[in-house]
Computed example of a mutant assay.
Amino acid sequence: MKGPLSSLKILDFSTLLPGPFASLLLADMGADVLRVESPGRMDLVRLLPPHDGDTSASHAYLNRNKRCIALDLKKPEAVEVVKQLVGEYDIVLEQFRPGVMDKLGVGYEALKAINPRLIYVSITGYGQTGPYKDRAGHDINYLALAGVASYTGRRDTGPLPLGVQLADIAGGSLHGVMGLLAAVIHRQQTGEGQQVDVSMTDCAFSLNGMAGAGYLACGVEPDMESQALNGGSFYDYYRTRDGRWFSVGSLEPQFMLQFCQAIGRPELAARGLSPSAEEQRLLKREIAIELEKRDFADWCERFAAVDACVEPMLSLSEAVEHPQLRARGLVVGVPRDGAAPQRQMACPIKFSAGLPEPRHIGMPVGAHTEEVLAGLGYAETRIAELKAAGVIA
Score class of each variant (00 low, 15 high):
residue 11 L to W: 01
residue 13 F to G: 09
residue 16 L to R: 14
residue 25 L to F: 11
residue 26 L to Q: 03
residue 30 G to Y: 02
residue 33 V to W: 02
residue 36 V to T: 14
residue 37 E to M: 12
residue 38 S to W: 00
residue 40 G to S: 15
residue 43 D to E: 08
residue 44 L to C: 12
residue 46 R to E: 08
residue 48 L to Q: 12
residue 51 H to R: 13
residue 58 S to L: 13
residue 62 L to T: 01
residue 64 R to Y: 07
residue 79 V to W: 01
residue 81 V to A: 00
residue 88 E to G: 03
residue 88 E to L: 06
residue 88 E to T: 15
residue 92 V to G: 01
residue 97 R to K: 15
residue 99 G to F: 07
residue 103 K to G: 12
residue 104 L to Q: 09
residue 108 Y to L: 02
residue 108 Y to I: 07
residue 109 E to V: 09
residue 109 E to H: 10
residue 110 A to W: 01
residue 115 N to I: 06
residue 116 P to N: 09
residue 118 L to T: 03
residue 122 S to I: 06
residue 127 G to K: 00
residue 131 P to M: 00
residue 131 P to N: 04
residue 135 R to P: 07
residue 139 D to E: 10
residue 140 I to N: 14
residue 140 I to F: 12
residue 142 Y to A: 07
residue 143 L to E: 08
residue 147 G to F: 04
residue 149 A to H: 09
residue 150 S to F: 08
residue 152 T to Q: 11
residue 153 G to P: 00
residue 155 R to V: 11
residue 156 D to H: 04
residue 156 D to I: 00
residue 159 P to M: 07
residue 159 P to A: 09
residue 159 P to E: 10
residue 161 P to W: 13
residue 162 L to I: 06
residue 171 G to H: 01
residue 177 V to L: 05
residue 181 L to D: 13
residue 183 A to Y: 05
residue 185 I to S: 08
residue 187 R to V: 03
residue 189 Q to E: 11
residue 190 T to V: 05
residue 191 G to A: 07
residue 192 E to I: 02
residue 193 G to Q: 11
residue 194 Q to P: 04
residue 195 Q to L: 02
residue 197 D to W: 01
residue 200 M to D: 01
residue 200 M to F: 08
residue 201 T to W: 09
residue 202 D to A: 01
residue 207 L to W: 11
residue 209 G to L: 13
residue 209 G to H: 13
residue 209 G to Q: 13
residue 209 G to W: 06
residue 216 L to N: 07
residue 217 A to L: 12
residue 220 V to A: 13
residue 223 D to H: 15
residue 228 A to N: 06
residue 228 A to M: 14
residue 228 A to S: 09
residue 232 G to T: 09
residue 256 M to Q: 13
residue 256 M to G: 12
residue 257 L to C: 06
residue 258 Q to P: 06
residue 261 Q to K: 15
residue 262 A to N: 10
residue 263 I to P: 01
residue 265 R to D: 11
residue 272 G to C: 13
residue 276 S to T: 05
residue 280 Q to P: 02
residue 286 E to R: 10
residue 289 I to R: 15
residue 290 E to H: 10
residue 292 E to H: 05
residue 293 K to D: 09
residue 294 R to Q: 10
residue 294 R to V: 10
residue 296 F to K: 05
residue 296 F to G: 03
residue 299 W to K: 10
residue 300 C to N: 13
residue 300 C to V: 02
residue 304 A to T: 02
residue 305 A to T: 13
residue 310 V to F: 00
residue 316 L to I: 14
residue 316 L to T: 05
residue 319 A to P: 00
residue 322 H to D: 15
residue 329 G to P: 03
residue 330 L to W: 14
residue 330 L to G: 06
residue 331 V to A: 09
residue 336 R to Y: 03
residue 339 A to S: 10
residue 342 Q to L: 15
residue 347 C to G: 03
residue 348 P to I: 03
residue 348 P to F: 03
residue 348 P to D: 08
residue 348 P to Q: 10
residue 351 F to P: 02
residue 352 S to D: 15
residue 354 G to F: 08
residue 358 P to D: 04
residue 359 R to P: 04
residue 363 M to E: 15
residue 365 V to H: 04
residue 373 L to F: 11
residue 373 L to K: 02
residue 374 A to L: 12
residue 383 I to S: 04
residue 393 A to Y: 11
